[in-house]
Amino acid sequence: MRSFEERKSEIFARAGQMEKRRKARLRTVLTAILLTALLAAGVTGIVFAQKAGRPVEPVKGQEGATDNPAEERTGTIPDAILNILTGRTFDGSLGGEKYGHNGGKAEATNVPKSVFIQPSRGRPAVSYYANEELYDALTEKIRRCFETCPEDRDGDFPEGGPDRVAEDVYFFYLFQNAGKGINEDFRFALWGDKLQDCQSGAVVVCGSEERAFLTALITGNASGN
């Protein structure tokens, strides 16, 4: 057995070790708390940043919507759409060679008579798609365009026929929310009386009613009826 002095020194040595272990544990816990807090702050920051970059604006007619359509579509993409619609400028950034447009060249003078249904990060588009009635109406209208003018198809229509269009529209909407670029998000373009499926290249000629609806949808005047 140990002598008294040995015991005593051993006791205080172990007490010192216990103190060291306690401090180490405290450090570990504090570090874990700090890291968790940083992680939480980071995630919160990302969420806020995402929200800030994708504001949702009320649809016209809904509570909180303004009477002025132009006021509703602030932001990069709606402005670009508005420019096309109003014929002010066209810099080619929304179309491009891929979609059979004017090659994506900046031609501010020659404004095409086309309307792009731009399911983008732009607020109006988000609002339209967030509104079930308008979404259904849009889907139906586009489906009808492809149904009623099958002879004008140009290119490969998505497998599954017109119903598939509706799915694609929906898919497209989800897709753009994943943060893809503008050009990749492109799905449909309304060229005068021709509606083009930008992904498949299929083109159909719309009747005046369909064209009016789609145009109104873009300009914010569609009611969904």
Binding site: M1, R2, R7, E10, I11, F12, A13, R14, A15, Q17, M18, E19, R22
Partner: peptide, 19 residues
């Protein structure tokens, strides 16, 4: 086990001194 007991007893007193 007397030796182990002594060892544990040292721990007990160390705990008393530390805690």
């Amino acid at each position: 086990d007397t030796q182990a007991s002594e060892d544990v007893a040292i721990d007990v007193f160390a705990y008393l001194a530390f805690k």
